[in-house]
Amino acid sequence: MNNPQLDKNGRLKHLLSIEGLPKDILTQILDTAESFAGVSEREVKKVPLLRGRTVCNLFFENSTRTRTTFEIAAKRLSADVVSLHIGTSSQSKGETMLDTVNNLVAMHADIFVVRHAQSGAAHFIARHVAPHVHVINAGDGRHSHPTQGLLDVFTIRRYKPDMHNLRVAIVGDILHSRVARSEIHALTTLGVPEVRVIAPKTLLPEYVERLGVHVYHDMRQGLKDVDVVMMLRLQNERMNGALLPSAQEYFKCYGLTPDKLALARPDAIVMHPGPMNRGIEIDSAVADGTQSVILPQVTYGIAVRMAVMSMLAGSGE
């Protein structure tokens, strides 16, 4: 079957999900991001690669952080950037998503960064745009958020370059997370031998073991000797339903505190995709502690998005 993410020469054309990306493309994204990480440390933090191209951030759902990092990434590539919050404009007048996109293509937009509450929205747009237009999924419902997954993997590789010798624990709401599944997939593809998921039964998808992970319900057992602790955000709305007793109870069992972190390896790193719920999934002492790489994740997110956009813009039809 045709992979909608690759062009006929096997180069990255759209980024819709991490699933379906061959290992060499994954590695190329991470290596290219490594080069862009250096650009962000220079006096002039721009390269001329996307001069003359237009990147359009199409946000059908708000996400200030994601939109901002995509904007900065596009600007550092010298692209022109337009950010649209669609919820407040055309759609409220009844325009369909494709009409919105086609109007922007008529204005010569080259790359669309799409955020939508509906799973599959970015795939849908990618299927219907002209061949020279590229689409990046910036989060579609519960389904996928590939650049977040990639920046997490990039962060792990930066701090723990020997990926063939790592224990990674993903903690929290795996069920509703749009990154956990892609991350498990990416980590396994890149050779990480042991991925653990730590969560109450109510926040785990059925048959999660089939993803090749080790399942723990007891956080203290699960964190033992891990090199990387990836905390997931607990969506506030989950706490009111039947899935969880209370925020305090959750923090007691699954919140990352200094004493629980002490069970991991002494040089373990702590990650969180943000925005954090301090005192619910993570203790401030850990979030602001020496093992936290939560802010570097944000910095690397820009390099990873620069890598993805430049690879897309350089692919053919």
Binding site: R11, Q28, D31, T32, E34, S35, F36, A37, G38, V39, R42, V47, P48, L49, S310, M311, A313, G314, S315, G316
Partner: peptide, 21 residues
């Protein structure tokens, strides 16, 4: 790689190395 004048024709080199000054 990020400064080549043939990017539009041939795309990004598949193996970039970080510049280091």
């Amino acid at each position: 790689s990020f400064y080549r004048d043939d990017f539009k024709r041939i795309g990004l080199h598949t193996q970039t190395k970080p510049s280091n000054i």
